[in-house]
Design a protein around this nucleic acid. Structure first.
Length: 345
DNA sequence: TCTGGGGTCCTAGGACCC
DNA sequence: TCTGGGGTCCTAGGACCC
């Protein structure tokens, strides 16, 4: 039987900010776009628990956060700081795992099936890890312990912040059953809405359905979702993912109608993407340009070359050719550029 | 209410090859 | 003159995650 830990840092960005600036400790901190007195464009990246008490949460439009909490401390993200903190923490976590998988800047899965004897042993290990992270990095995290990644992730979220939740094999169904559907990995706003139309509210409601019903509704994904609702997930903790694509995008402060200006920004994006490509010793074959119009209608256009390259001129010119049909008439909110089908140089 | 920016994975139709 | 089935690549869009 497997024993998996999921470790998740608590309100990571605001916590790092408070660590670096002790005068912020205990304050309602919102890291994200500049609210500009309620006229800002963008969203909340992460809110401290004090800010969450005002109803502010990540992905919320920054204008809405401003209305809910004008007295919160609003900060722009400092990714260099977060990456440095993250690297230190990941090194600690990795040292305790047979197999280790970083899943984003502030979370990771640890396979400890052979490291510990049983779930009691895993619980002790989890406490040790939480203490070591607090001691060495002055940050708190929450940990879930379970027989697989899916349940471990849900468990780490169960008692935040600074929480430890152990779910043994025999307790998995009972643990999941009362939870909201949204807790399942892969159920976002769209899928949630479709399932709620069928009066399905909890993971238990889903588990009680026949797999066939879900398959008809959602296809192959429905079959997987039914397994998830039973707490079944056989996916492995995987080390060392290869990058699949590199991209950059920008939302204009005001929707743009100046084609020359848009092309200028696209050139800048090409330069930034190209630099990252070179720094990582990649070549690319596919170029994708993204355009979002005034009212959020979004289109992509891509082109695969017959060869792989890391040439800036090719990237720039291909991008311009791809975006050209979109530069007539309508106001543009966002443009983006991404390269994929990467090959090591 | 107004929706960032970094990504991943999946689907589906059409082209093309054997 | 009519036309199967499998596989892969390309393109566009969509859902989701942190």
């Amino acid at each position: 039987m497997r024993i998996i830990l999921h470790v998740d840092l608590d309100a990571f960005f605001p916590s790092v900010e408070a660590r670096e600036h002790p005068e912020l400790k205990g304050k309602a901190i919102v890291v994200g776009a500049d609210p500009k007195e309620g006229r800002g464009r963008g969203v909340v990246s992460s809110a401290s628990y004090e800010a969450r008490r005002h109803g502010v949460h990540s992905a919320m439009p920054i204008t809405r956060a401003w209305k809910l909490c004008p007295d919160c401390v609003y900060l722009r993200p400092h990714f260099d700081l977060y990456i440095r903190a993250s690297n230190g923490i990941m090194r600690i976590l990795k040292s305790h795992a047979e197999r280790f998988e970083q899943a984003g800047i502030d979370e990771a899965y640890l396979d400890v099936s052979k490291t510990v004897k049983d779930f009691d042993g895993a619980q002790v290990l989890a406490k040790d890890i939480m203490e070591e992270v607090l001691d060495k990095e002055k940050l708190t995290c929450s940990v879930g312990v379970a027989p697989n990644k899916l349940v471990a992730k849900i468990a780490s979220d169960y008692r935040k912040p600074c929480g430890l939740t152990v779910v043994r094999e025999e307790d998995v169904r009972g643990f999941l059953s009362p939870l909201d559907l949204r807790k399942l990995l892969g159920v976002g706003p769209r899928t949630e809405a479709r399932l709620k139309e069928l009066k399905l509210e909890t993971v238990g409601d889903l588990a009680a359905l026949s797999p066939e019903v879900l398959r008809r509704l959602l296809g192959v994904w429905g079959t997987r979702l039914h397994e998830y609702s039973q707490g079944l997930d056989s996916s492995e903790v995987v080390e060392g993912y290869e990058t699949k694509s590199i991209g950059r995008e920008v939302t204009f402060e005001q929707d743009a109608d100046d084609g020359e200006m848009v092309l200028g920004v696209l050139e800048e994006l090409a330069e930034v993407v190209h630099k990252e490509l070179i720094d990582n010793a990649f070549r690319f074959k596919t170029i994708t340009v993204k355009v979002r119009y005034q009212h959020f209608e979004t289109h992509t256009r891509s082109k695969s070359l017959l060869f792989s390259t890391d040439d800036l001129d090719i990237l720039r010119n291909s991008a311009k050719r791809l975006i050209a049909p979109h530069l007539r008439g309508r106001r543009i909110r966002l443009i983006g550029l991404r390269v994929s089908t990467l090959l090591r140089r």
